[in-house]
Amino acid sequence: MLLFNYFYNTLAKEREELQTSYNTLAKERDELQTSYNTLAKKRDELQTIYNTLTKERDELQTSYNTLAKERDKLQTSYNTLAKEREELQTSYNTLAKERDELQTSYNTLAKEREELQTSYNTLAKERDKLQTSYNTLTKERDKLQTSYNTLTKERAELQTSNKKLMTERDQLQNNYNRFSALKQTGPEGWTLFQSSWYYISSEVKSLNESTAGTKQTFLTKLNKRVWIGLTDKDSEGTWKWVDVTPLTTAYWSEKQPDNGSGDRAYGEEDCAEHSPELIDMA
């Protein structure tokens, strides 16, 4: 009986020591669980920025579920303390290991939180730079929009001017067509043949008089200074036509020909030209 009391007291003492250790460990577990809940709340606030915390949270939840299951087993083992003392010691060792793992996870999570805060600060700085760039780009866009509006207005003005010019061109084309139609009819008494106009006179003249008179009338109507194909370049004062035939009848202006009047500024004159003032030198 004494021996039984001794073992019973010893077993009860060991049980109380294990219970104390278990309570201490449970308290540490509860304290760690409180810290874990606080950290999990912060982790949730940073969840949108650092997605990898989700995986670690799930792993921690699994450990928590395992611990709850072991706690239930420990409660059952309490009723049969003597038989399951060794199992309780094993559970204690397991719980101590899990505590260390949880502490390590806590330290890792705290470090990741600091790194995430640093990343957040960097991202905020980059956001501010992007905002500045965006503002600058917006200002440049507004300037380009103003330039675009100006160019659009100028384009409209040019289109208006272009339409006006096209209208004027069409009017000029119509006038030109009417003039061309009128030109095709020719003046009274003249006949068009192979791009040349001919006048058949009823007045009787010699060949030279007729030729000279007709040309003189035509050139006078031009009202321009034109070369008539007469030159004395081969021999000064000896006038010949381009076909080398000599000049027989001339209509010179007063004091002509003068070969440039001896003025070197004009140079030597070798060609006869028609002008509104009759025949002149050139």
Results as ranks from 00 to 15, higher is better:
68 A>M: 10
226 V>M: 07
126 E>T: 13
63 S>M: 13
155 R>C: 02
4 F>H: 14
73 K>N: 11
87 E>V: 11
210 S>V: 01
184 Q>A: 15
57 R>Y: 07
251 Y>G: 05
45 E>Q: 13
265 A>H: 09
151 L>N: 08
109 L>Y: 03
125 K>P: 01
28 E>Q: 14
263 D>G: 05
6 Y>E: 13
58 D>T: 11
186 G>D: 02
238 T>W: 04
27 K>S: 15
217 T>D: 06
221 K>H: 07
2 L>F: 12
20 T>E: 15
115 E>Q: 14
237 G>P: 03
252 W>R: 02
210 S>H: 09
33 Q>S: 11
268 E>A: 11
24 T>H: 11
72 D>F: 03
135 N>D: 10
228 I>N: 00
257 P>S: 01
264 R>W: 14
54 T>E: 10
95 L>E: 00
77 S>R: 04
176 Y>G: 00
87 E>N: 15
248 T>E: 09
242 V>T: 13
88 L>D: 03
24 T>G: 08
24 T>E: 12
247 L>D: 04
195 S>L: 05
103 Q>R: 10
193 F>I: 15
235 S>T: 15
189 G>L: 03
42 K>H: 07
195 S>W: 05
282 A>V: 08
22 Y>K: 03
167 T>S: 13
146 T>E: 06
163 K>C: 01
211 T>R: 13
136 T>D: 09
59 E>Y: 05
26 A>N: 12
151 L>H: 03
216 Q>W: 07
255 K>A: 10
120 Y>F: 15
247 L>Q: 06
90 T>F: 08
103 Q>T: 14
105 S>T: 06
56 E>F: 07
112 E>C: 01
57 R>N: 11
